[in-house]
Simulated assay, not measured.
Amino acid sequence: MIDDDPALCTRLQEYVAQYDIALLTCGTPSKGLTALAQHNPDLVLLDVMLPEKDGFTVCKDIREQYDTPIIMLTARGELTDKVLGLEIGADDYLAKPFEPRELVARINVLLRRGNTRTKKELKWSFLGLDIYPEHHKLVLDGQEIDITGMEFRLLRLLAGNPGRIYSRDELLNELKGMGSDVYSRSVDILLSRLRNKLKDSAQSPKYIKTIRNMGYCFVGKRL
């Protein structure tokens, strides 16, 4: 659920749990899109009035990569909004305030219908580089590159948050959280190997940049 009303999110989380529905909530589109890539949910509840950008734009962003069913939620009940939402790819539209039981019924209808739908292959495209985060696949200048599991996890972490600076300790903690036997020095080794496979360099980085006394960030140019 992508909605900036925390009280509503909490109430719905508690309500739908009794119907064996696990609801993950995000307050901004950026967090919602990240969660969508990480968790591959069965359905998205999407508010229209959001910070960063409106729900119609977010719906378009989702539809570029996913066939995941979308129910749009909004306090605006105008017919034109409903038509627009459906035209850009939403599967259903529910105006606020709504009865939670009706929402559960609509969710179940779409989930039953969604059994025949398949999710498009997710791809992150940068200049000269395509990353398929769900399929452990890396394509550099049109050629698929052999990459170890740990190298790919490191790349997926950095490229999944372009521009964010990760300290060595943060990278270490993230990789350890993936159930791996990682120690501080191995992060440097992984970064070195990853740069070699990307034909990148610390002196003139195309993808992974070292920020002195701070850490590392992904600087690939998004397409």
Score class of each variant (00 low, 15 high):
S204H: 12
M150Y: 12
L12R: 01
G163C: 03
V104Y: 06
V16E: 02
V48N: 10
R222Y: 08
E134Y: 07
F56I: 12
L23I: 02
P100R: 02
V109Q: 10
L191K: 01
E52R: 05
Q38E: 15
Q13F: 01
L198E: 09
E52A: 08
R164F: 12
L24V: 13
I70N: 00
C9Y: 07
D54V: 01
D47R: 04
W124H: 09
L46Q: 10
E64G: 03
R195I: 00
K31S: 15
K82V: 10
K53E: 04
I70L: 00
A7L: 13
P100I: 08
L73Y: 02
L158A: 09
L84N: 11
K53W: 00
R212M: 05
D181G: 09
F126I: 01
A7K: 11
P97F: 07
K123Y: 08
Q203G: 04
I147A: 02
A105D: 05
K119F: 04
K120T: 03
I71Y: 07
C26L: 02
L8V: 15
K119P: 01
K53R: 10
D47A: 08
A22V: 11
W124K: 06
I147L: 13
I208D: 05
L111P: 00
T10M: 10
T34E: 13
I165E: 04
E174G: 03
I145A: 04
L191A: 00
L129P: 07
P6R: 05
V16I: 09
P6Y: 08
K120P: 01
E99V: 11
V44P: 04
Q13V: 00
R101Y: 05
A202W: 04
N173V: 10
T80K: 14
E78Q: 11
A95D: 10
C59F: 09
I21W: 01
D130C: 03
G85D: 11
P29S: 07
L138H: 05
M49R: 14
A202T: 13
K221P: 00
L24C: 05
A159W: 09
V139R: 11
G89A: 05
I70V: 14
